[in-house]
């Protein structure tokens, strides 16, 4: 396992705002790594420093074993897909894709062939002569991707590239991006604030908060075993029991997380089977979200939990009428996860 990018103690402040506050990160060759965090958490700044658009105040960035901390963007073997795509409006789609090769003085015939190949790779072979302004958002996104990939960079950096697309297209592009990454075998570093996107596409996720990486792991690790209250709340639904309520419900103080899909809702008084915990509660809110129904339940001992159930069994209307009903919540005690 080679390290494509090695970042050590990276720091950057803008005026009085500390954007990046000591980040260490190793990106493994060929992986799809997502930098996930709320806006202002420093993830984009880290990406921009790797690309070379921002200079760090302190720390080092190594690319493939070479220190590039003070190298300008054009001397780094990385390419970026920008949030606004940043296609050049005065060039055709094909000219946009060729730009990097033209700058590097690749002979014209080879340049054309590689650009066409890249365009076919994103399934836009017929649109090479169009101007970027004549393309839809999804098509521009693909052109931006082809323009970056045609240079065969060591690492591809993606700065919230799906943010401007509508939900359907975004989900489609998530699958497609992942497939492209598997095909070309290039290391992807992907920035997003969308937890679903991060969980769907990544090999590993680095969760950012306040300029630091607060957890680094596979999607399942991040989701099932959040390292802190922040991660538990940011990835997935915040379903926490704290201090007094935790003691009342679970018999243990501290902060505990129980993922909503682990909780079963049963008729009031259902006894717990072995290894399970049963807690009485009252349904406060029922939210129908198509595929599933989300219920907010006030627990009798105190505290509130959200439970999600697939809409496979009972009729949705029946669920919606459950507001105010007394129920019993059941879950396996091994899904009680301490996030202290």
């Amino acid at each position: 396992m080679n390290t494509a990018i090695r970042v050590r103690d990276l720091r950057r402040t803008f005026g009085t705002v500390v954007a990046v506050d000591g980040v260490d990160l190793d990106v493994i060759d060929g992986e799809f790594l997502t930098l996930l965090g709320p806006s202002g958490s420093g993830k984009t700044t880290v990406l921009r420093m790797i690309a070379g658009f921002e200079r760090p105040d302190a720390g080092t960035i190594e690319l493939d074993g070479v220190d590039v901390t003070s190298a300008p963007p054009y001397a780094r073997d990385v390419n970026t897909v920008f949030q606004d795509y940043a296609l050049f409006p005065h060039m055709s789609v094909l000219e946009n894709i060729e730009y990097g090769l033209r700058v590097k003085k690749v002979p014209k015939a080879e340049r054309r062939a590689r650009a066409m190949e890249a365009l076919e790779g994103v399934r836009l072979a017929d649109l090479g002569d169009r101007a970027p302004s004549q393309l839809s958002g999804g098509q521009r996104q693909r052109v931006a991707l082809a323009r970056a990939l045609v240079n065969r960079p060591k690492v591809l950096l993606l700065d919230e590239p799906l943010g401007a697309l509508d939900l359907k297209l975004r989900e489609q592009m998530q699958v497609e991006l992942k497939a492209i990454q598997r095909d070309v075998g290039i290391t992807f570093v992907f920035v997003t604030h969308d937890q679903d996107e991060a969980l769907t596409m990544s090999d590993r996720i680095a969760v950012f908060n306040e300029g630091r990486i607060v957890q680094l792991g596979t999607p399942a690790e991040i989701y099932e075993f959040p390292a802190s209250e922040f991660v538990a709340g940011f990835v997935g639904t915040s379903n926490l029991l704290r201090d007094e309520t935790a003691r009342a419900v679970l018999g243990n103080a501290g902060t505990w997380s129980i993922r909503p899909e682990k909780i079963r809702i049963s008729a009031a008084g259902t006894p717990a089977s072995s290894g399970e915990r049963a807690v009485a509660g009252t349904v406060r809110e029922v939210i129908y979200v198509g595929m599933s129904t989300r219920m907010v339940i006030d627990l009798a001992p105190g505290g509130t939990l959200v439970a999600v159930e697939q809409n496979s069994g009972r009729h949705a209307d029946e669920r919606l009428s459950m507001r105010g009903e007394h129920v019993t919540l059941l879950w396996n005690t091994e899904h009680e996860y301490s996030v202290n």
Partner: peptide, 20 residues
């Protein structure tokens, strides 16, 4: 981002000024 993109694709400042 337009200037960043040009630099990112390998163009130094003079080239970016001329071509973009």
């Amino acid at each position: 981002s337009m200037l960043d993109a040009s630099a990112d694709l390998g163009a130094h400042s003079g080239r970016t000024f001329r071509s973009i």
